[in-house]
């Protein structure tokens, strides 16, 4: 669905992404992992169109994404950005309504069809009860769900998320990632209701939750795609130790097939 082909990109002439190639298929979640500064956010910014690539191709079903206008592109790709301060005076519903921007004229008139989609996005993210509250009054987890709902209202086949769980506690991390997983793997009911499978690319630091929610893991190191495979293939001590420059152990739970990554080295003597 989304094809990233030999993409190079960077800032002020300094190349950060070095020939990244990655295919994000419809109905799959790819987790983008790697140490700080490895280029995860840069890749997401490049694919979203905010940062033009220096070379390489970005394709959506063989269509050249870089040839699309800003508005056309925002109908293909939606982004859940790394959470910063959000304008506090917007209500949740107003913020989610902005997700309809790709389909609105400059006056921003909302049709009944738009309202329906906004309500659906609010329902999917459990925000219906908070819809009339101001964003400034919400917790970090709720704000992050607002950003997800806004991206859902964009109704794009491709969804990019940049460390969406960074500020969430464990409970919210799990429920947030479950929602993300559902977007690529909708239930039969949802499919019957006309919900399409999406292609999801999510940059994430938490290595332990991956094995449950990601179909594939892409490991980036120094702007290169170091390793791509299923969680079981990539989450291996020899691969991660090298990437993160830290001796570590991976504990497998035989029953569930889930794994936990633990660093070996103590940072200081106790």
């Amino acid at each position: 669905m989304l094809t990233i082909k030999k993409i190079c990109a960077g800032y002020n002439g300094k190349i950060i992404l070095k020939e990244i190639s990655l295919n994000v298929a419809q109905g799959s979640v790819i987790a983008l992992i790697g140490p700080n500064g490895s280029g995860k956010t840069t890749l997401i910014r490049t694919v979203s169109g905010v940062l033009p690539p220096a070379s390489g191709d970005l394709l959506f079903n063989r269509e050249d994404l870089t040839a699309l206008s800003v508005q056309e592109r925002s109908r293909v790709i939606a982004v859940v950005p790394q959470m910063r301060t959000l304008p506090p005076a917007f209500t949740v519903r107003e913020a989610v309504t902005l997700g309809r921007t790709p389909y609105l004229n400059w006056l921003g008139q909302i049709s009944d069809h738009d309202l329906e989609i906004i309500n659906q996005a609010l329902t999917q993210t459990d925000l219906l009860d908070l819809a009339e509250r101001n964003i400034g009054e919400l917790s970090g987890g709720e704000q992050q769900r607002v950003l997800l709902a806004r991206a859902l209202a964009q109704q794009t086949p491709v969804l990019l998320l940049d460390e969406p769980t960074a500020h969430l506690d464990l409970q919210y991390q799990v429920s947030f990632l479950e929602k993300v997983y559902r977007l690529a793997h909708p239930s039969l009911d949802e499919i019957n209701n006309g919900i399409e499978k999406r292609a999801v690319l999510v940059a994430i630091h938490d290595l332990n939750l991956l094995s449950r929610y990601a179909d594939q893991v892409a490991l980036m190191v120094n702007g290169r795609l170091e390793c791509l495979g299923t969680p079981a293939e990539v989450l291996r001590p020899e691969i991660l130790s090298k990437a993160y420059n830290l001796p570590l152990t991976i504990i497998q739970d035989q029953g569930s097939g889930l794994s936990a990554v633990l660093p070996d080295q103590r940072p200081f003597e106790l």
Binding site: V70, Q71, V79, P81, F90, A95, L98, T101, P102, G108
Partner: peptide, 17 residues
């Protein structure tokens, strides 16, 4: 309204910033 979320998000929401 969209610009209140910053230039980058505005562009990702389809506004020619």
């Amino acid at each position: 309204n969209v610009l209140q979320f910053g230039d980058e998000q505005a562009q990702q929401l389809g506004v020619p910033v």
